[in-house]
Amino acid sequence: MPTVEFLPLDPRTVNVRTFDCGKEAINVYLRRYAAKNMALNLNRTFVLPYTAEDSTGKPNVAAYYTLAHQTLVREELPDPSRLPRYPVPVILLAQLGIGRRVHRQGLGAKTLVTALRHAYQIASNPKGLPAMGVVLDVLDQDALDFYQSFDFFLPLTDNPMKLFVPMASLETL
């Protein structure tokens, strides 16, 4: 059973090799690139550990998400009228994956809400970094259907696979 909270990824303490969400790009990112990108200060990955019956000492990963900073030109945002003409900061929800072993337990929504709350905390903390909202580059139609089941995502561009949620919408989340 998964633990209660997401923790920063530390591959010395969790087994990322067994993670399988059914989407190879999401699996490969966690297994090969997440820790390397964190070491380079490019982003942060957070994992929800759980101990499976076949565990070999380290907990497996039930779910994970990755946050990074990004900038967008104002014309890309849904309501650019009050923004400066230079690029504005946003937080990118770069990765989100739920392991197959724990599918259908509500972890998709829990992981998404946790990631969005975390992004809001980063942007609203006086010691954090400000951001206009959260951007998602959606992997495929299954992921798009999942995200669209939440009412707060807006299309970012004409591309339906790019979504945006303003920080103000996350205040009550």
Rank of each mutant, 00 (worst) to 15 (best):
T56S: 14
K58A: 14
V61K: 05
A63C: 13
A63Q: 05
Y65E: 03
T66K: 03
L67V: 03
A68L: 04
Q70L: 12
T71E: 12
V73G: 08
R74E: 12
E75C: 05
E76M: 14
E76H: 10
L77N: 02
L77I: 02
P78D: 00
P78G: 01
D79K: 00
P80A: 09
P80D: 10
S81C: 07
L83H: 01
L83T: 03
P84Q: 03
Y86G: 00
Y86I: 02
V88W: 01
I91W: 09
L93E: 03
L93H: 05
Q95M: 15
L96Y: 04
R101E: 15
R101I: 01
R101W: 13
H103F: 13
Q105N: 15
L107I: 12
G108L: 07
A109Y: 01
T114L: 06
A115M: 13
A115S: 14
L116A: 08
Y120S: 07
I122P: 06
I122W: 10
S124Q: 13
P126F: 03
P130V: 04
P130T: 09
V134G: 06
L136T: 07
D137L: 12
L139E: 11
Q141E: 15
D142T: 13
F146T: 05
Q148P: 00
Q148C: 06
S149I: 00
F153A: 11
P155E: 03
L156H: 06
T157Q: 10
T157S: 15
T157G: 08
P160K: 06
M161P: 07
